[in-house]
Design a protein around this nucleic acid. Structure first.
Lengths: 125, 125, 125, 125
DNA sequence: GTGGTCTAGACCACT
DNA sequence: GTGGTCTAGACCACA
């Protein structure tokens, strides 16, 4: 479920965080379900427990999960987070359009690429 | 022309590289014109010459500039670069559409944001 | 009567302690009345009896309850406790004023906030 | 300038964070001035550099400082932070008033304590 | 068993 | 020199 790419320049804990964000936002991990324990996941991925701990701490800070000492870590309710993520993506759209305009990409070319993206309906990995 | 933001978390050399890329791609810096010398630019920006050296090396590696021993560094022809950048942006469009679809943003909402971006015609900083 | 918030970062036993303190200080639980048994309360809240045990021990240590071997735990007389709590709150007032002064909150602003708080007469949850 | 209290139940990194917040909010540490390096401060306090690193990371996350790789950590502009802190304190005032009312502290007693706090004019440690 | 903190020591990227 | 990441291993609080 979680894959570490050692060639990736980003730190491991960040990759773990991002992967969980994806799984949570897509609803693969349901609210209040339990995450693997810090130690278990660390063993599975053959990385240090502290690294997982850091990833979980970051996810908790961002509101994706909540942790209870002695019990474990659990998925938060994701309604609010999904809305935030949507807003974030739409903001990126604006920035990308701006960049595109500056370098001379026409609205037609841009839109055709957007359509191309939306066409691939089944491929929702 | 170049502004360093020390509060930006990215390394300084990367900020310098990005700024030059922008200026070159937009055609502000014309092909074959000379860049400021490493030492001068370092003094102007009050940063370490090594940092500028590294930025120039990176720009050369990416084909944005070329250096002539004993003469200095010069802007490369940007036709090819502009095309690369366009392709890069269109690829980003596809990726963004993919992300948007996965989180449940409809094509309508996405397109309306794209239009909003293209509407702001005057604001081409 | 007791609600556990698992998303609360504080340990469960602490939440139980605090809730009982509230109920005792407000007089909802009358002096010498009996508390639910450790086992029963643990079952009701679906938590570990050890956790309740710890909460009761803490409440006894602080003088909120007393336990009789073989009979159970009982609410202490709350007169003295109420006075302690009042002193405690007034001490917090002093500390808060100190903090406020240091950061530049004027007496006027502070007092208006205090009045605002005392105005809301009905909302005594 | 920074004192660690080992009897304090809170983690060391949190004590460091809080102390710096105080110094920054009070304006003792001026914007853009440099903090001691992670290693130096760790040596001075005889604690592990990682602990200081964590404190600095937390301060950066909260916007109190900004760090530049290879250069050091610096104080952020604190105007915004002061306002946030003021709002936070005024909210605490409301909560304290609520608690006070519930336990039977009269407005008169509360206000006299507030006045007592504001009277001690010189003692601004 | 769980999460959370801390230490000691290493390595990397950046200036 | 600086900050940032990671590992290995320890200890604590909590359930």
């Amino acid at each position: 479920m979680i894959i570490i790419d050692y060639k990736d320049r980003r730190p491991i804990y960040e990759q773990v965080v991002e992967r969980f964000q994806e799984l949570i936002l897509k609803g693969v991990l349901e609210p209040d379900s339990q995450l693997p324990s810090v130690r278990n996941l660390a063993m599975d991925l053959s990385i240090n427990p502290n690294t997982i701990q850091r990833a979980y701490a970051e996810l908790e800070r961002q509101g994706y999960i909540y942790s209870v000492k002695g019990k474990g870590s659990f998925i938060s309710d994701n309604n609010h987070l999904v809305q935030c993520k949507k807003d974030e993506i739409l903001l990126e759209v604006l920035q990308l359009v701006k960049e595109a305009k500056e370098i001379g990409i026409t609205k037609e070319i841009f839109l055709s690429k957007v359509n191309e993206g939306f066409e691939e309906e089944g491929k929702d990995d």
